[in-house]
Amino acid sequence: MDGIHDLGGMAGFGPVDQEQNEPVFHEPWQATTFALLMATLGSLQSANADEYRHSIERMDPAHYLRAHYYERMLTGVATLLVEKGVVERTDLEQRAGAAFPLSNPVAEDPMADLAPQPKARFAIGDRVRVRDIHPSGHTRAPRFVRGKTGIVLHVAPAFSFPDASAHAGALRQEHTYHVEFPSRALWSDAGADNESVVVDLWDSYLEASEA
């Protein structure tokens, strides 16, 4: 989905605020939330990592930006467990003593029409273009590279295709490629000559590019 989570290249954000000697968790509820995610993906077997990422992407955009990382994690995990019938929202709200915000529902027909690519179609040095897809569900092709052309630097092993596995689609394994895009190809005049971005992209997202 073309959601708030897909932040690469957006303007208007201020300085990066770096805390010295930052602890792993700032507050105990953050550690609890992380552990509940591990339980949900692990022993509870209630969701996979792609469903989990998408549960956060489906948050109300204003809430997403306002929330701390671990509040986003908490919202996503709770959403999945409610959607899968493991816990009930009314019970959670009773226990919490006030509203428990959850993410928006999964869109209908969430996947772009991308044919499975079980074999690696590209090799190091190939020119590839990222398909200009706009699925309403989960995807890991960031907006800032769609329609752009880059060069394959590395072929990685095959991994589960997230657009399918986030939506209980037929599991399919596809290679990913580290594709380098010159800064000018992405940002035009706002880019720079000796900068580039390398994006890790599944085979289905790509098509061969001649020049």
Binding site: E27, P28, W29, Q30, T32, T33, L36, A39, L44, H63, R66, A67, H68, Y70, E71, L74, V77, A78, L81, V86, V87, E88, D91, L92, E93, R95, A96, G97, A98, A99, F100, P101
Partner: peptide
């Protein structure tokens, strides 16, 4: 993090989810 007044705090929500499970 700014809390919306109508939302339970993240701390209360994490405790609620942990308790329910």
């Amino acid at each position: 993090t700014k809390q919306r007044p109508e939302h339970a705090t993240p701390e209360a929500r994490a405790a609620a989810l942990e308790g329910a499970l």
